[in-house]
Design a protein around this nucleic acid. Structure first.
Lengths: 207, 207, 207, 207
DNA sequence: CACTAAGCGAGACGGTACGTCACGTCTTAGG
DNA sequence: CCTAAGACGTGACGTACCGTCTCGCTTAGTG
């Protein structure tokens, strides 16, 4: 009886995912994503296997293979569905403060144990799967890139920043060191680092 | 025939790898490293398995497990033995030119197809193996860090650069964007990028 | 266009199969049987699966499950619909010649490659399904048993054969060796064998 | 400590099976055969799967695939190792009594529930695997054929039977009806049947 | 004659088993 | 005692079919 309702809800929750001819079972879909996230937290990226996801989700393996191309694809959807990032774009009036705030929030996520590990696993896999790479960028990178660009452009508009900066480069110079430290673990990801980094970058772009 | 020579060279190149009391068969040792490199080039990091290395090297699996802790450890030794990095430390008199030169050389290595992929695989694995992480940093990161620090310190000594810069941070800001682009493939790693990057960094540290 | 005709023929050939109140699609019915026979010839009994029959027939799996209890049931109907056996009962005046003739015709069918294999597959399956066993006997065995019994009884009536023979036993002694050789392949099924066999049997029952 | 002993015993038990280079683990070998027989008795031929045999035997699936080509091959070895047939060749002085005795013993085995079913399964599979067929004949058929031929030849030697009979044919006429009834279940396999059958056959071959 | 329940094609679903791969350990024979 | 070889128990892979279960659509018999 609750079936119509179930489908309706699903449609509402993720209306974008489907050509809609597939008649996909949304209960299974969600169960798989949930199971993936749980296992990620319990065992870490490398220990997860599709069989475990399937059995935890109460789902046949085929149902996973039908809709995703790999473990990494499942986990990416799981993460992005759970929306690690609905990046707020702070607007304090100071580029420095805006950036520190956005980085501070990012560090909070990344230093959660399993997240860093999961990101590293995804990154490794994305080396070999171009379509995975592109969705990773879309879901994990671009949102921040855009938020950061907005902050910088507001800074330029306010006359706080030089208008001729190469924003692509600036943004890479902000996030590069962060991912670098996340993966290589040769330095901390904490608020002092955020501030130092932002200060240094601003040296190069301030008006 | 050339075996004595071969052994000598090997010992010299990586004298640190072996406790040296156990009577290790150097022919096997080399065969394993060679096989690993070949397979890396033919199939890529993810496709390699220890059984393949063993069989290609004409070696028992046990011989690999006896001397290395994991696939990643073999591959790291294979790469470092083949010395990706004997980093020269250029000294042109200009920090900018020195840095551009060192980065240019790095890009040449990294854009070799299999190398980038292998690095990504190693990075993924070192998330889960602290000792691996530490040798990776030693062999792939520190040599460049040191070369770069030397260049920067020479710049400071010459009065070209501000003496109060946080060099750790500066170096992360140079290499961070590079590894970031290597792994995420959202931007190129070429000489114009090197120059732009170096220019931007120098803005923040010049005297 | 030829559909009405097609339906009529079908109805006539196997009028017994359907409760007839349910509105069964005769086109599908025939397509399934045809697909089954084709697959049987192309791939052999063991390689056939219901999904393949359904897809070859352009039919939903459910349609097969609705009307048959198992793969074996489909195949039995397919075979019997195609009427391997409309056994003629020869009457040459000589028991020996009658029997030789009937066996000769049987051998012709059995030595068709796929038929023997199909029979063996059915036999294996009917070990586990009593109702299947009973229809197999009805469709593949009894027709011959009866024809043979008729021949033997005519021989008795003519005084050619002893009247006190156990005809059940005699018939088993005729057909047993045939199925035995079909399944075990340790001897041929050809006309000389038919004659030898008939001769030998007759030794035990002639007047 | 008991390992040498274990190997020795094994060698003694089945010295014929191996080119002897394989260094096969005899404990596993036996465990697999035992598990197969147990499962056969508990669940029947069709319900058995290789995974179940492996897990019951405490053995990896690969170990089964390494040494046998199929489920049927395992089961055949299991059965023949357990020697369904060390056919004694009775010698009572009367062909009729000898044959009745040998058949009576055979019926006892065949009417054991699982055995008949297993035989039927093997027979079905042997339609598609010539090498399996040949070992089936060797292990299940020839031993009886030979015993029976011996009995018949003794009868001929004693002058009890006609010397010009086609013994192949006679033997098929004895065993054919038996396998036929085993598989088709249209008649009993009991001592009265044995006697009737033997009596009928003898009619055709007595001196 | 339209309505409506059925049968239909399609194919997703939870499962089981397949046969293969590679893991890391263990055993054997030979140098 | 190290080695090449490779069997072993383990566990995951990705695939094939199973038999069941919706989904809309088509269609045939009844009301």
């Amino acid at each position: 009886m609750s079936q119509l309702l179930e489908n309706k809800i699903t449609q509402t929750i993720s209306p974008n995912t489907v050509p809609l001819k597939r008649r996909r079972n949304e209960r299974s879909h969600q169960a798989i994503l949930t199971a993936a996230v749980e296992l990620l937290q319990e065992k870490g990226y490398r220990e997860i296997c599709i069989e475990a996801i399937a059995s935890r989700a109460g789902v046949g393996k085929q149902t996973i293979y039908r809709w995703w191309s790999s473990k990494a694809a499942v986990i990416m959807e799981a993460y992005s569905a759970r929306a690690i990032q609905n990046i707020p774009t702070p607007d304090t009036g100071s580029v420095k403060q805006d950036l520190c705030q956005i980085l501070s929030q990012l560090f909070a996520v990344l230093t959660t144990t399993t997240t860093g590990e999961a990101i590293a696993g995804l990154i490794a896999e994305l080396q070999m799967d171009a379509s995975l790479a592109s969705s990773f960028r879309k879901q994990f990178i671009e949102c921040r890139t855009e938020a950061t660009r907005t902050i910088l452009e507001r800074g330029i508009a306010r006359g706080e920043l030089r208008p001729d900066s190469n924003l692509e480069l600036v943004i890479d110079t902000i996030y590069g060191p962060i991912w670098y430290r996340l993966l290589l673990k040769h330095g901390t990801l904490d608020d002092p680092f955020a501030e130092e980094l932002v200060n240094f970058i601003i040296l190069g772009i301030q008006a």
